[in-house]
Design a protein around this nucleic acid. Structure first.
Lengths: 337, 337
DNA sequence: CCCAGTTCGTAAAACGATTTCTGAGCTTTA
DNA sequence: TAAAGCTCAGAAATCGTTTTACGAACTGGG
């Protein structure tokens, strides 16, 4: 099954035609007769020919798209699945550059992909400044996932996190809750990074609360389990403690659950908790967290669709928002009183 | 920052030398004077030249290694980190092909990487039959992670799961436990797939129990949360129920914890539980699972080292076993009686 | 001063595909 | 029937780099 690779030249010889003919049959195929196509195809399958992607990439198309993502984030796996699904029947391969959160690392990975003449790039929640992304979009078809705000030279796919937060609040209000706290992330000193999902969730929470004439109560901590714990401690030690908490992330929600446990509060009887992201842990029976599902697969397949449009020549930017859904599990119930 | 890419030809012109000279400076550099190196380097940085990887891949080296892995597995992230670490200072890039468990999918991803003339491949727990892996190893430097057994044409890096299981049993015995059950995975009808970590863990458990003159008690179910639940129900409803359970996987251990909870058993007072894999969930304060840590990062960096040796010409196969460590958290304690 | 042996550098040939250009053979049209 | 138009196929140029082969200039020893 190994041995020296079979090249287009050998296929051509076997079929008794020229290299150009073989190439034309395999690609667009302008000006090839049925007889020739048949001959070539037989030789191709017989020899088990697979075109050398490196050679392809140099001239013409590389038949490959690149995905840049932090694979430590659980949702990346689902998004990737969606991306692959969207690639069905397109002869496009997918290559992933693993990165961390460091912009420097992301930059070098993107560079590496550019060096390979990929046909397009999908960036999952990149932490690069917008001007850089715009420049990138000008040099290669680019789609961003999970970054709010849109741009002029790339497409964007994201969850409508404002609506998602609304769903959470609706659900809790519908159960009869009035004092609903939200645990959010600090925004940094200088400017509000409005491109982040966190910000949108906070906004959505505030808007939905106001819609119901309820007083928003935003508690700012880290987006970690520990942050959720300290945030919840704040919310639950007030003289009129919250009866429900909407955490900005499932991880935060886990910290909230721990805090509740430590304070002797039962969930959901004494306290309702809603998270966001629907990470795998949340589905475990022991956790059974009510949460907002970000539809990772749909994000992936949608971004593939947009990317293919862009590869096919579209220039104008498209922004696609996906409406998340609420997954009701065991951490929400009507309040006691 | 975009515009047409700058090629080696332009660098050569700017430096007033030939293309070959530039190439030699950038690579091995045989027969280049200090003066020439200096000239070329200046032109390179000045023009911001970055060699086109596609062109490189066609002739000579591609400066890239490929990783084939199922990114849904949490440990892959850590392994990848280790791989990157091992790549420091080597001018090698890393590209990841995301796959599922399906052999068909893995095959096509490997093909895709072969088409790109990569310098080497790292396969994380591939589910491909051995002959195929041997053939692969003959056509490209290959290292396998997490697959027991070794081979003739590739290197293997794995955890010493036998030793790991031994650690778990030692720990429990040291605490005073005698009735320790193990929840394992079914082996399939026809032959024992001895290449899997699960099998090694089961073997290690049996050996360690015998060493202490204790009767092994292996319960076979699925390697899932649900499997752990049903397995634990079996182990805990005996007339002389187990006082400790060694689960083959953290996910299984979570199911055990749930079963314990449902039966009104407190952990660790009434039941000790040890898992294996140290997935992120296990570290959460509410779970605090005692488990065996597979040293993912070390697996990664070791495999990179071996791969580089192979790329540099080594032919004989190397198998490297990593001794895992026990992470003691809150689910283990001395038995009641 | 000549010759062999180094050094340093370049021209040109790969690598394996795609694409452009050209021409051979037919068919249609005037 | 000659000119024009089409269709199909191949020869050759091209992509950007590495590598090979070779020549020029310099060195040092006799």
């Amino acid at each position: 099954m190994s041995g020296p690779r079979v090249t287009i030249r050998e296929v051509a010889r076997a079929a008794g035609v020229s290299q150009a003919a073989v190439s034309k049959v395999l690609n667009d195929g302008y000006g090839v007769s049925a007889a020739m196509r048949e001959k070539v195809m037989r030789a191709v399958t017989e020899l088990g020919y697979r075109p050398n992607a490196a050679a392809r990439a140099m001239r013409g198309r590389s038949h490959t798209i690149g995905v840049v993502a932090d694979i430590r984030t659980p949702i990346v796996a689902q998004i990737t699945e969606g991306i692959e699904e969207g690639l069905q029947g397109s002869s496009l391969d997918i290559l992933l550059a693993p990165v961390g959160k460091a912009p420097e690392r992301q930059r070098s990975s993107i560079d590496a992909m550019l060096n390979r003449n990929l046909e397009g790039l999908i960036l999952i929640v990149p932490s690069l400044p917008r001007p850089e992304l715009e420049a990138l979009g000008q040099s290669i078809p680019t789609v961003l996932i999970g970054r709010h705000g849109g741009g002029r030279h790339f497409d964007s796919v994201m969850d409508d996190d404002v609506a998602g937060a609304g769903l959470a609040v609706e659900h809790l209000v519908g159960l009869g809750h009035q004092r609903i706290s939200h645990i959010a992330m600090p925004m940094g000193k200088f400017r509000r990074p409005s491109v982040l999902p966190q910000t949108a969730r906070e906004d959505g929470y505030v808007i939905a609360m106001r819609d119901h004439d309820l007083e928003p109560d935003v508690i700012t901590t880290d987006y970690t389990e520990e942050g959720g714990h300290t945030g919840a401690m704040t919310a639950l030690r007030r003289k009129k403690p919250a009866t429900a908490v909407f955490a900005g992330t499932d991880m935060v929600a886990l910290g909230v659950l721990r805090a509740a446990h430590e304070l002797g509060l039962r969930v959901p009887e004494d306290l309702s908790v809603v998270g966001a992201d629907n990470i795998p842990v949340s589905a475990l029976p022991q956790i059974a967290l009510t949460t907002i599902d970000p539809a990772g697969k749909l994000n992936g397949s949608t971004s593939t669709r947009l990317l293919r449009e862009r590869i096919d020549g579209r220039r104008n930017p498209v922004t696609h928002a996906i409406t998340p859904s609420l997954v009701v599990r065991g951490t929400t119930a009507p309040p006691r009183e």
